[in-house]
Amino acid sequence: MEKSEVIIKLTGIFRTVFNNDTLVLSDELTANDVDKWDSLSHMILISEIEKGFSIQFKLKDLNKMRNVGDMINTILVKLSL
């Protein structure tokens, strides 16, 4: 899967989880920039991403994600395995 396809799919998941149809993803986007993206909703987001892309994260992967860019890269790595 190409990065652009990942972004499109990921945007859909973000919009559903945070109930925000106008949310636009960028590499620099962090939890601080998105309303209601807190430690509670984060794990629901992670679970939906795993389901959407049919991948499995490790806890270590999560700890290393600093922004959406890191998240996209991790998804790409998981998809290529």
Binding site: M43, I44, I46, L59, L62, N63
Partner: peptide
Amino acid sequence: VYTPLSFNFRRWKVWGI
């Protein structure tokens, strides 16, 4: 504590949290 726990319970969705 919370993040490792909720990560392990993430399949239970909101009840995992």
